[in-house]
Design a protein around this nucleic acid. Structure first.
Length: 301
DNA sequence: AACGCAGCCAACCGCGAATTT
DNA sequence: AAAATTCGCGGTTGGCTGCGT
């Protein structure tokens, strides 16, 4: 009975450095797969599921751990959530260095924040006159611009400030009402404009057809020329990540560097790997992935 | 200084899909 | 083809931290 229990014992909770080491060694040897074998071999008392999650969310190279979402990233998440719904993994595939968990956490935080704003606003609005409402709304700028969503991004680059242009997002000439999220947040303390909060939340209501109301950070323009979706840095292209050219890709993610200025790598999880990304890879032999089967060639499928 | 609250994040759980036996 | 196993995703939870009162 005890023996069986012991055999079935599964470790949970925060990961220790030593466990990360074991997991990294497994990935180094066999690649990011066979998660269940880690436990069956007695390497770790973690479930395969837990191992995979740890790798995907924290140990995988190129992750932007501990970095707040840049404005561009926020914008993309909002747009893609609008389009795909809560398909976090899919949305994350458009954001280099972000995991589905990151996106999910970002979104739920945002939802909570907005819900709280709405709650606050409704309580304040009941105690305040309509006059007050109108007064507040007048100082919050609203942008109503035709959104140039198109799968053909060429020639579609917006010349207008505040218009949005995300390639590969199929949209008709819908009107996007952009509400600066920063304004929402900063006005929380003083007086909330219920109208704006409501507008923001209504975009979750599918019944809104002609006008989309989205809380957007107010930024001049998306200065990117992203080809979506970005390749995910995971099982599919792990080999690319460890390509000899990787060194140029590790300091920053080019696209988000300017806004985020965020270093990549598991900088905050454990000291052994936090010094810098180079020392992280110093631990790996040059032929570290020689043992790994190359990804299936799509043409052979 | 102590307390409460909100935000953030890592990790777990359940379930369905995909893959293997 | 069916059952078993593994994997991946989305929802949820709980702990930690920072900030305001």
């Amino acid at each position: 009975m005890h023996g069986k229990k012991e055999q079935e014992h599964v470790k949970k909770g925060p990961w220790k450095t030593e466990e990360d080491d074991v997991l990294l060694h497994h990935v180094k040897t066999y690649g990011p797969r066979d998660w269940s074998s880690i436990r069956s071999k007695g390497l770790l008392q973690r479930t395969g599921k837990s191992c995979r999650l740890r790798w995907v969310n924290k140990l995988r190279p190129n992750l932007k751990n501990g970095c707040k979402f840049a404005i561009e990233e926020e914008r993309i998440v909002i747009e893609l959530q609008e389009q795909f719904g809560n398909k976090w993994a899919k949305i994350a595939s458009y954001l280099p260095g972000r995991t589905d968990n990151d996106v999910k956490n970002f979104w739920s935080s945002r939802q909570k924040r907005l819900a709280r704003l709405l709650k606050t606003s409704s309580s304040t609005s009941t105690s305040k006159s309509h006059k007050n409402k109108a007064k507040v709304s007048s100082h919050v700028p609203t942008l109503e611009v035709p959104c140039k969503f198109s799968s053909s991004s060429e020639g579609e680059t917006s010349s207008k400030p505040n218009s949005c242009s995300l390639p590969c997002i199929e949209k008709s000439a819908e009107v996007i009402k952009m509400v600066p999220l920063q304004d929402l947040i900063t006005s929380e303390k003083s007086s909330i404009n219920a109208n704006y909060v409501e507008q923001d939340l209504t975009h979750f209501d599918q019944s809104y057809k002609s006008t989309k109301h989205i809380a957007f950070p107010q930024i001049p323009e998306l200065q990117t020329d992203l080809t979506f979706p970005m390749e995910r840095v995971d099982e599919q292209n792990i080999f690319d990540v460890f390509d000899p050219l990787y060194s140029s890709e590790f300091g920053m993610v080019p696209f988000f560097e300017s806004s985020g200025g965020c270093r990549i790598g598991n900088m905050d999880t454990n000291d052994d790997f936090s010094t810098n990304i180079d020392s992280f890879f110093d631990d790996f032999p040059e032929d570290m992935f020689d043992h790994i089967d190359p990804p299936a060639n799509p043409s052979n499928l």
